[in-house]
Amino acid sequence: MDIHHGRFTADIDGDFVVFLIGMRFNKPLQVSKWWPVFTAMPAMMRTIAQHPEIGCLGTRNWFGRTTILVQFWRDFESLDRFAKDRDLPHLEPWRKFNAAARKSDAVGVWHETFQVRAGEYEAVYANMPAVGLARAGRHVPVRSKADTAAARIGKAPADDQSTVDGY
Rank of each mutant, 00 (worst) to 15 (best):
R81T: 15
H51T: 13
R74H: 14
F63W: 15
T66K: 11
Q71P: 01
V70F: 08
T59Q: 12
T66H: 09
N61G: 11
C56Q: 05
G64T: 11
L57W: 12
F63C: 08
R74A: 05
N61S: 15
Q71C: 10
V70S: 03
S78D: 08
A49T: 09
W62G: 09
W73C: 03
L57P: 10
E77K: 11
R81P: 02
V70L: 11
L69E: 06
H51K: 14
L57K: 09
L79V: 12
C56S: 13
W73Q: 01
T66D: 06
G55P: 01
R81W: 11
D80M: 06
R81Y: 06
E53Y: 04
Q50A: 13
Q71W: 04
T59V: 14
L79I: 07
G55Y: 00
F76C: 04
A49C: 07
D80Y: 06
R81C: 05
W73L: 03
D80I: 02
F76D: 12
Q50E: 15
H51S: 10
H51E: 07
A49N: 13
R65E: 05
T59H: 10
D75G: 02
V70P: 00
R60L: 07
C56N: 14
F63M: 10
L57H: 09
L57V: 07
G58L: 10
A49W: 09
Q50W: 03
E53S: 12
S78A: 15
A49H: 14
R81H: 11
F72V: 14
E53P: 01
T66M: 09
I68K: 07
P52N: 08
A49S: 10
E77C: 00
V70A: 12
E53T: 06
T66V: 08
S78H: 07
R60F: 13
P52K: 06
F72Q: 02
L69C: 14
I54K: 00
L79W: 03
I68H: 05
R81A: 15
N61H: 14
R65H: 05
R60I: 05
Q71A: 12
F76E: 15
C56H: 03
T66C: 06
Q71Y: 04
L57Q: 09
G55N: 02
R60E: 15
D80K: 15
F72Y: 15
T67M: 13
F63Q: 15
G58E: 09
F63V: 12
W73I: 01
L69D: 06
T66S: 12
E77P: 03
T66Q: 13
W62D: 12
D75L: 07
W73P: 00
H51C: 02
R65W: 08
G58W: 09
L69H: 10
R74L: 06
I68E: 05
G58Y: 11
N61D: 14
T66E: 13
